[in-house]
């Protein structure tokens, strides 16, 4: 039990720090790299929660594909690579206040509702087979809908970004 908590603490600290850096760093490429740290941390959390398959997908899709997409986006928009002080707009104060209050409200609610709820210690590992069965039996329609959504997004992205 202790080992799990120590690991969680380490992951959480790394994630929190990296997340803060994503939104504060002055170097846009660094922001993408910090994002990798956060995403990997989320994958680690999934492992802690015994959700192996989702963890693997997280690594493959997020770190493997989406971050690369971001790097391409940075490249194609010729964002200044290197330190620039011009990445924030002038409503940082408002944003800070809003997000701090948001965290306050969320924290209060969570503390109120789940303050002492424990996860079962004998957490069974949820097998990939179960996940697959669930997707293709109970949720096959949302699955199909999402495939159509992806197709639409694909076509949409091509149409929007096409030079004409």
């Amino acid at each position: 039990m202790l080992a799990q908590n120590v690991i969680f603490g380490a992951i959480a600290l790394a994630m929190a720090a990296a997340a803060l850096r994503v939104v504060t760093t002055k170097n846009i490429v660094h922001a993408a790299l910090y994002l990798v740290v956060v995403l990997a941390g989320v994958a680690a959390l999934y492992i802690l929660l015994a959700a192996e398959f989702t963890a693997v997908v997280q690594v493959l899709v997020y770190i493997g594909a989406i971050v690369v997409l971001f790097l391409f986006g940075i490249m194609l928009t010729r964002a200044p690579i290197g330190i620039t002080s011009d990445l924030d707009n002038n409503q940082r104060g408002l944003a800070l206040v809003v997000s701090l209050f948001l965290f306050g409200v969320l924290g209060a609610v969570l503390n109120d509702a789940y303050g002492s709820t424990k996860l079962a210690s004998d957490n069974v590992i949820q097998k990939s087979a179960d996940v697959g069965n669930s997707i293709f039996q109970d949720y096959v329609i949302p699955f199909e809908v999402i495939s159509i959504l992806l197709l639409a997004a694909l076509i949409g992205a091509v149409v929007i970004a096409r030079r004409d």
Binding site: A95, L106, S116, S121
Partner: peptide
């Protein structure tokens, strides 16, 4: 492990994300 430790971490990530959406100028 408490359930809340995950939820609070997620809430923190969420708020950091909200801050980023509101305060960042660069679209990416």
């Amino acid at each position: 492990m408490y359930l809340n430790q995950f939820l609070l971490l997620a809430a923190f990530l969420f708020c950091v994300g909200v801050y980023g959406v509101l305060a960042r100028k660069n679209g990416v």
